[in-house]
Simulated scan of single mutants.
Amino acid sequence: MRDGTDFVELARIWRGPVVESVHRGTVVVADFEGRLVGSWGDAGLMTFPRSALKPFQAMALVESGAAEAYGLSDEYIAMACASHDAQPFQTALVSDWLGRLGLDESALVCGPALPRREADQATAFAEGGPRRLYHNCSGKHCGFLTVARHLGAGLDYGNAAHPAQRLYLEILSDYIGRDASGLPMGRDGCGLPALALPMRDLAKAAARLSLGYSANPARRAAAKRVLGAMQAHPDHISGMDSATSRIFRATQGRVVLKGGAEGFVMALVPERGLGICIKIADGSSRAKYGVLARTLGHYGVLPVAEAEALIDQVNDPITDSTGALVGGTEIVFEKPVPTTETKATLGFWLGGVKEAFF
């Protein structure tokens, strides 16, 4: 963070009549040429998109010919893009995928984990406890393993210098319009390299991906297949009836999205050639999908009334231990009716909003 305008107030958490928490963040919208369509906060903010980059990683699986070589349907392509809940249908796909490669889960770089949902956790404990198969990134790791197998490379795909990682960097470089190998690199929670990049660059890359942009015909075909797989299998991307799948269905696939850890989400709007990136400053994920829904209404991707209804569908209710509703999440940026009294602070309106239209 460089100054107070890097992030603006995006959401408030209410408990009864009092604001209990405030989520600040940045929203960036760009077109395929990298022109800034809109920005709340600093569009140049450098951050880690984390799992939001998975669609670009999955493109290597298709472009290399690995997906075809191993007979992978679109369900597997969607799983390569997924941060999944380890529901039975998802772990069955990962298990089958490893079998196609002649490998078991010990080949996965990611560590053992448990399913996200309590019912599935009970089954997991009954069957032996945490497994690498259950890790929410195991589909992505299968994708890298498949590319490694197809290229005849070693299985140390977690190495940044591995051919599978280099192919991914080449693809990302094409979409951001500069060499991605020079970007700051950390390590993701699943053990693979994690890149940081300016939000404006990723918004441009998302817009380009939405249009299948590339001078490389195989890459254009890969982009089309990855997006088609995500649109066809929204429940694979996270879990059944997740916020992600609700947005896919509410927009009838006209918006393709992928969340990332620490409050990040990327969305693509193919019919408009737009890329949207959202980062919640404190790393919380509970407001990011509501912020995305408001953004979709702001740009007419959804009618305003539908976008506002979608906010309620993707914001988790705030309840007590009995399940009684005790609070809620309010998205405060860019109210659809600006003449209506807002609960956003005066400082938000005077110091936070930056929008540029071209």
Results as ranks from 00 to 15, higher is better:
residue 6 D to C: 12
residue 9 E to W: 06
residue 9 E to A: 07
residue 14 W to I: 00
residue 14 W to K: 03
residue 19 V to K: 02
residue 25 G to E: 12
residue 27 V to A: 05
residue 28 V to Y: 06
residue 34 G to T: 05
residue 34 G to E: 06
residue 34 G to K: 11
residue 35 R to G: 03
residue 36 L to Q: 08
residue 37 V to G: 04
residue 40 W to L: 15
residue 45 L to E: 12
residue 53 L to E: 06
residue 56 F to D: 05
residue 58 A to R: 01
residue 62 V to N: 03
residue 63 E to N: 00
residue 66 A to T: 00
residue 68 E to H: 00
residue 69 A to T: 00
residue 70 Y to V: 00
residue 72 L to W: 00
residue 75 E to R: 15
residue 76 Y to S: 00
residue 80 A to S: 15
residue 81 C to E: 04
residue 88 P to Y: 02
residue 88 P to D: 06
residue 90 Q to D: 02
residue 91 T to K: 05
residue 93 L to W: 02
residue 106 S to Y: 01
residue 108 L to S: 05
residue 111 G to M: 05
residue 113 A to P: 01
residue 117 R to K: 14
residue 118 E to V: 13
residue 128 G to P: 11
residue 129 G to F: 06
residue 140 K to N: 10
residue 152 G to W: 06
residue 154 G to K: 01
residue 156 D to F: 00
residue 166 R to F: 00
residue 170 E to M: 03
residue 170 E to P: 00
residue 174 D to T: 15
residue 182 G to V: 09
residue 183 L to H: 08
residue 190 C to E: 01
residue 191 G to M: 02
residue 194 A to I: 00
residue 195 L to I: 06
residue 196 A to R: 10
residue 197 L to F: 02
residue 202 L to S: 02
residue 203 A to P: 03
residue 203 A to C: 08
residue 205 A to R: 08
residue 207 A to F: 05
residue 216 N to S: 15
residue 217 P to G: 11
residue 218 A to L: 11
residue 218 A to N: 07
residue 219 R to Y: 06
residue 227 L to F: 08
residue 228 G to E: 05
residue 232 A to D: 04
residue 247 I to H: 07
residue 251 T to R: 12
residue 258 K to W: 07
residue 260 G to F: 07
residue 269 V to C: 13
residue 272 R to H: 14
residue 277 C to R: 01
residue 278 I to K: 03
residue 286 R to Q: 12
residue 287 A to C: 13
residue 291 V to W: 08
residue 297 G to F: 09
residue 298 H to K: 13
residue 299 Y to T: 04
residue 302 L to G: 03
residue 302 L to Q: 05
residue 303 P to R: 09
residue 310 L to N: 10
residue 310 L to Q: 08
residue 315 N to V: 09
residue 317 P to Y: 10
residue 318 I to R: 12
residue 324 A to Y: 02
residue 329 T to F: 03
residue 338 P to H: 11
residue 340 T to N: 10
residue 343 K to E: 14
residue 346 L to A: 14
residue 348 F to A: 15
residue 350 L to W: 10
residue 352 G to S: 12
residue 352 G to W: 01
residue 356 A to H: 11
